[in-house]
Amino acid sequence: MKKILIITFACLISIGSFAQGNVITKHFADYQQDQSFTKVNVSSKMFSLFTEIDGEDETEKAVLDAMSKLKGVKAVVSDSGTDGAKFYREALSRVQKDGSYEELMSIQDKEEEIMFMVRNDGDIIAELFMIIRGADDFVLMTLYGEIDLNQIAKISRILKISGLEEFGKLGGN
């Protein structure tokens, strides 16, 4: 009986963790099916490879450690010619309805608008989500796993994945 309880509890935990997932899988599955969007998916396996690299100094070691704790990156990018403002409003509305994401920072100028949001899991940041509205394009990008905000700017500078550099703005760049 005890064994059955443990198994049931383990199953519930895993289902719970799976349901957390990430904001793109959860709220933007229709965008992922849409042929007009470019979809990017970096798996947790990719980030686990960073544990095999030796950093030369403390900064590199800290960045590699932060990278190895990431579970994945997902992005949906629209081609130019999109009504960025419309998609931005819609994305914001979907995420706000969820209730588990809170605004971290927003940047707004004539050309673009960027919203950073985070989802906490206890004391750790489990997801960092970004919505970008350009003049005629639109980007959704999320990093999930265990996020160290202090290292995000450095990671974004190292990886140079298109769009990820916006996370560098969290570091004041």
Binding site: Q35, S36, K39, V40, V42, S43, K45, M46
Partner: peptide, 15 residues
């Protein structure tokens, strides 16, 4: 195992 996947209507990349 899957590392990276990039897909759009005219190009795709699987790592």
């Amino acid at each position: 195992e899957e590392y990276i996947e990039v897909v759009n209507d005219s190009a795709s990349m699987f790592v």
